[in-house]
Design a protein around this nucleic acid. Structure first.
Length: 522
DNA sequence: CCCGGAATAC
DNA sequence: GTATTCCGGG
């Protein structure tokens, strides 16, 4: 059997050193509004390409950390891509520094030209059970992953004011929670770092929730075509490589559509995924300070969460959230490894698209993997063949083939790669409505109402805070908003934590939690 | 080298 | 909104 149901998506190291890597990270349009290639994406591109390992490469040992070995070259490449010949490392690095606040990147202090993607924390917390060897043959495309044994010893996680405190104040009162929140709020917009896990994590979850909704057949409300079409993003260099960590995401999007045998107890039930458990939960679990869950269950749970990670389209600040929000995600996948479990159907390549047919530059004639035969017959929602997808093309096309030796045949524009278009099948029904909130947990007995209430109070409280408009200078206000955003996150996390906990403990409570959460949301 | 503010471009 | 450009400062 393949890597096996639930574990399938989690461990694929066997494939040949292939590690998981958030596929969402490659989504060019991860940032709504910006049709242009983004630097972090570009970096990832280079990172993923073996041909550039001498220019930029993952740093062994630290997941998500990479070193720019040749700053000038990277800058040059970036400049080329953006048609900014004057680009240099100084400027590029400035752009990178802007990512700090967005929490896309961190600077690895002390190490020259070394940065670290933030999602390491995003992913790892969800794969504590991955059985992999970081020192194994880690392909350029795969960021080093800490061993399971390294056990969450995130340099940045356990340092400064930890999340666990402010976000996961177990039985804290609204008061204490608020203090924490305030503290967060007072913080400078560029926090030391230790809070991304939760927030990003949660965002991922939220996103997934949204997707669930979309996948639940609600997509009818959308007018955007992209939510129906799932373009498979093919990376020429890696596509054919089944071992590539980028060909992951066997989940193929919607967690709700997964066939991954996730624990029946902690499956993609509405109780859990509709209201996304707090990301703080994961770290909390890890620290093993708050709860004593059955490792097995926990594993399943985390695996479930993993879905969100895979589906998480990095957009730290732009991913909308909210229970009712439908996220029209055009999703790009590389290769589906366990197609039989994907409720998606392949669709003939959208050659109709203008820039599709012009396979002009040799860059991407990459043979698109035959997904079709792999995809099992599934119920497919008739879709209007609108624009398959909004794929941008760069005016830089004029550059045609680069003088770059590496670039010549290789690709520099993954975005232009052949796309596979698949459309998700509409799930039988809305998991929200029919999913059973039942969970396998009934072991715990302590009532969680307290936490729940606290969370709720907190919720309203924060909401109130959010409501009031302050007349600050644009700039300050932005920062303020940023902080508030974080406050909101913290608050919501709190609430969700209680929800998830309740859900885990008792089905009934779970339902109530949902109601509460729903109320709070609305 | 690295950091961010500010202005600016897109 | 992201990135570029410039830059004073550690």
């Amino acid at each position: 059997m393949k890597t096996g149901g639930g574990g399938g998506m989690v461990e694929k190291a066997k494939g040949g050193g292939g590690y998981h890597f958030p596929e969402w990270a490659y989504k060019p349009e991860s940032s709504p509004g910006s049709r242009q290639i983004q630097l972090w994406h570009f970096i990832l591109e280079l990172l993923q390409n073996e041909d550039f390992r001498h220019v930029i490469a993952w740093q062994q040992g630290e997941y998500g950390e990479f070193v720019i070995k040749d700053p000038d070259e990277v800058a040059r490449l970036w400049g080329r891509r953006k048609c900014k010949p004057q680009m240099n490392y100084d400027k590029l690095s400035r752009a990178l520094r802007y990512y700090y606040n967005k929490r896309i990147l961190h600077k690895t202090k002390g190490k020259r030209f070394t940065y670290k993607f933030n999602f390491n924390k995003l992913v790892m917390p969800n794969y504590p059970f991955i059985n992999i060897r970081p020192k194994g043959a880690v392909p350029q495309s795969a960021p080093p992953v800490p061993t399971a044994s390294s056990h969450f010893s995130f340099s940045s996680l356990d340092s400064p004011n930890d999340d666990a405190r402010g976000r996961f104040s177990g039985g804290s009162t609204a008061q204490s929670s608020r203090e924490s929140l305030n503290e967060v709020g007072e913080r400078k917009p560029n926090p030391p770092d230790p809070d991304d896990i939760s927030t990003d994590w949660r965002r991922g979850i939220d996103l997934m929730s949204s997707r669930n909704a979309v996948g639940s057949g609600i997509h009818g409300l959308q007018k955007h075509k992209s939510e129906i079409m799932l373009p498979v993003f093919s990376m020429p260099g890696m596509f054919p490589d089944p071992h590539s960590p980028f060909s992951v995401s066997p989940l193929a999007g919607r967690g709700g559509m997964l066939n991954v045998p996730i624990s029946p107890a902690l499956s993609l039930t509405p109780s859990i995924f509709s209201y996304s458990p707090s990301p703080g939960l994961s770290p909390a679990f890890q620290s093993g300070s708050c709860f004593n869950f059955n490792p097995e269950e926990m594993k399943h749970y985390l695996q479930s969460q993993a879905c969100s990670v895979f589906n998480y389209h990095l957009s730290p600040r732009t991913i909308p959230r909210g229970p009712g929000f439908m996220f029209p995600l055009p999703q790009r996948h590389f290769h589906l490894e366990e197609p039989q479990s994907y409720p998606i159907k392949l669709q003939p390549p959208p050659m109709g698209r203008k820039n599709r047919e012009h396979s002009q530059s040799s860059e991407e004639n990459n043979p698109v993997p035959q997904l079709a035969p792999l995809i099992p017959p599934l119920k497919v929602e008739p879709v209007s063949d609108d624009e398959p997808l909004s794929d941008e093309e760069f005016g830089s096309s004029g550059l045609s083939s680069d003088e770059e030796p590496e670039m010549s045949v290789k690709k520099e524009d993954p975005e232009k790669e052949g796309h596979m278009f698949v459309k998700p099948a509409a799930p039988p029904r809305s998991p929200f409505l029919h999913g059973s909130p039942r969970v396998g947990y009934s072991g715990a007995e302590q009532p969680l109402e307290v936490t729940e209430k606290a969370a709720r109070d907190l919720s309203t409280e924060v909401f109130t805070v959010e409501k009031k408009e302050d007349s600050l200078p644009p700039k300050l206000r932005l920062k303020r908003l940023w902080n508030e955003d974080r406050q909101y996150e913290a608050m919501e996390e709190c609430r969700k934590v209680s929800c998830i906990i309740s859900a885990i403990r008792t089905p009934v409570l779970s339902t109530e939690s949902q109601a509460l959460a729903a109320a709070a949301d609305s």
